[in-house]
Design a protein around this nucleic acid. Sequence first.
DNA 1: AAGCCACGCAACCGCCAAGGT
DNA 2: TACCTTGGCGGTTGCGTGGCT
Length: 337
Amino acid sequence: MVATPPTSPTQLDSIPSMGRSPCCDENGLKKGPWTPEEDQKLIQYIEKQGHGSWRALPKLAGLNRCGKSCRLRWTNYLRPDIKRGKFSDEEEQTILNLHSILGNKWSAIATHLPGRTDNEIKNFWNTHLKKKLIQMGFDPMTHQPRTDFFSALPQLIALANLCEFVDGWPKDNHAARFQTEAVQATKLQYLQFLLQSASTMTNSSNSSGLGTTTAADLETMSLLNSQMTSPFPTMAPSGCQNINGHEQVNQIASVLFEPPTSQENIECYTMTAGFSQGDNSQITTQRISPPSSLPPLNGASVANQGDVCSMSSCNENETHSIWPEFLLDDQFIAEFA
DNA sequence: AAGCCACGCAACCGCCAAGGT
DNA sequence: TACCTTGGCGGTTGCGTGGCT
């Protein structure tokens, strides 16, 4: 079988020095971009003899290259089973899922994507997926929502509330649109956070490590991830409904809002997320330990040790205070799914 | 038309682990 | 056991390209 060099000779001829230029030529060995002639020599030799010892190969194949360079050229570019072209949505999703589990183990990830090289996946990650995750508010390394989200959220919400405050004033299109977008972004981030927290819990409770991760675990994580990484949360509530029982729901609250652990009273911060619905209800969250530089919004409260931050539906004008317990019920999930 | 800049990607570098002597 | 060789991996670099001003 003859491998087709992905870059045609004419293309290469027109590109005198693609990629990194030769920085030195230790031992007189050539470095830098491969020419079509070199590619042909390498392909022909490996097809006839196999690569055997990479160190010995260059001499035997008549190439003035080091073995390492030959191996790299073959495995990343000339190998006949390499799949070129854009990554499909399925491949992208696979990379995201595997990266959330394996991290930057590109070679391990590549074993799950036939025809794709670790180098290609790595490049795709660095140029596309990483940015995509960042744009969506996720830390690309941990796949968790960025930890600076809640510290940035109050400003966002304060601005949104400001718009509400001046509701009586004539609102221009920009202000109205900003408020809408702020609310949308808040909703998106919040729901993604919920899902990710659920995913984390599922992962940690069902498996103690990679070696014990079951197919069911992977399936669950994959499901949650696929919901999480969609451009806008249109997920069905089923992902959350997998979490059975009130106790686990309260664990989510713990993860989300980090209840106070000290004996001292801690200032509580009220975040009005403003998830306005047709029935005029809102989702209101209470958060412990606000950024000290920002004043509390909408009526500060004091939380005692053991209090669990709350999130519940309430009417627009209801006084916000510490709720006795966190309740994430199916109604909420369904309401905002 | 020219300059600037961000992006994509091939290729190199340095390190590490495994296997052989 | 220590050293050497080899292959493999992840991080990084730097050039070409295309879009924008």
